[in-house]
Computed example of a mutant assay.
Amino acid sequence: MRIGTLSERTGIPRRMLRYYEETGMLIPGRCANGYRNYDEQSVDRALQIRGLLDAGMPTRVIKQVLPCLKQPGIIHVLNAAPETLDLLERERDSMSERIETLTGSRDAISRYIDTVRRARVPEAEAA
């Protein structure tokens, strides 16, 4: 399939798909005319990459774990290098810290909203 079709099927902009290719995370075939030719597995691969990026994982880490991701939701690890495991542990810990920070921020905003709404109720009743 051409890049436009892959973009439509995944919801990922063409420019981003080209970036995935530039970084070596997504490798299309090439037609005789030089056009990119993506196979059916490219749909899942592009979605995996997008999901990992959305989770906050940097591309340098994604490139290392992609070979372990043969199908969505299934991880195949063959002789994982200790460096890769250390890197993934650091990424996991970093994600956990970001989650805690976001949770704290969300909770603070919720408390603020609740306080403002409670303060408005007496104003509305007085009117």
Results as ranks from 00 to 15, higher is better:
residue 63 K to A: 15
residue 105 S to G: 02
residue 47 L to F: 01
residue 105 S to K: 03
residue 121 V to M: 14
residue 122 P to L: 09
residue 47 L to E: 06
residue 20 Y to K: 10
residue 29 G to P: 13
residue 114 D to T: 10
residue 127 A to T: 11
residue 10 T to H: 06
residue 48 Q to L: 15
residue 18 R to G: 08
residue 33 N to G: 03
residue 16 M to V: 10
residue 28 P to C: 10
residue 84 T to E: 07
residue 4 G to Y: 00
residue 27 I to S: 09
residue 83 E to F: 02
residue 31 C to L: 15
residue 69 L to R: 07
residue 109 I to N: 00
residue 44 D to Y: 01
residue 71 Q to S: 14
residue 34 G to S: 04
residue 59 T to Q: 00
residue 13 P to H: 05
residue 54 D to V: 00
residue 53 L to F: 00
residue 27 I to N: 11
residue 3 I to W: 11
residue 127 A to Y: 08
residue 81 A to I: 02
residue 105 S to P: 01
residue 15 R to T: 12
residue 49 I to Q: 01
residue 97 E to S: 00
residue 29 G to A: 15
residue 92 R to A: 14
residue 76 H to F: 07
residue 81 A to C: 06
residue 55 A to T: 02
residue 114 D to I: 11
residue 122 P to M: 12
residue 61 V to C: 04
residue 46 A to S: 09
residue 89 E to C: 10
residue 53 L to Q: 06
residue 101 T to Y: 07
residue 21 E to N: 04
residue 76 H to N: 13
residue 20 Y to V: 08
residue 54 D to M: 00
residue 85 L to I: 05
residue 35 Y to S: 08
residue 75 I to H: 08
residue 76 H to W: 03
residue 20 Y to G: 14
residue 9 R to S: 11
residue 31 C to K: 15
residue 12 I to N: 08
residue 43 V to C: 10
residue 80 A to I: 14
residue 37 N to H: 14
residue 38 Y to S: 05
residue 101 T to I: 08
residue 37 N to D: 14
residue 39 D to N: 13
residue 76 H to P: 05
residue 24 G to E: 06
residue 87 L to C: 12
residue 91 E to C: 05
residue 124 A to R: 15
residue 122 P to I: 01
residue 75 I to M: 14
residue 94 S to V: 00
residue 89 E to K: 07
residue 26 L to C: 08
residue 109 I to F: 00
residue 123 E to A: 14
residue 65 V to Y: 04
residue 1 M to E: 10
residue 61 V to Y: 02
residue 14 R to Y: 04
residue 32 A to R: 15
residue 79 N to W: 00
residue 67 P to S: 01
residue 61 V to I: 08
residue 119 A to W: 08
residue 105 S to E: 05
residue 90 R to D: 09
residue 7 S to L: 02
residue 41 Q to F: 00
residue 83 E to K: 07
residue 19 Y to E: 01
residue 45 R to L: 14
residue 47 L to H: 07
residue 113 I to V: 09
residue 41 Q to W: 02
residue 44 D to G: 12
residue 16 M to W: 02
residue 94 S to Q: 03
residue 86 D to I: 10
residue 79 N to V: 01
residue 27 I to D: 07
residue 76 H to E: 08
residue 55 A to S: 07
residue 32 A to V: 13
residue 44 D to E: 11
residue 51 G to P: 01
residue 32 A to F: 05
residue 75 I to P: 12
residue 77 V to T: 12
residue 8 E to P: 03
residue 108 A to I: 06
residue 16 M to T: 12
residue 92 R to H: 14
residue 42 S to N: 10
residue 100 E to A: 15
residue 2 R to H: 06
residue 8 E to V: 06
residue 84 T to M: 13
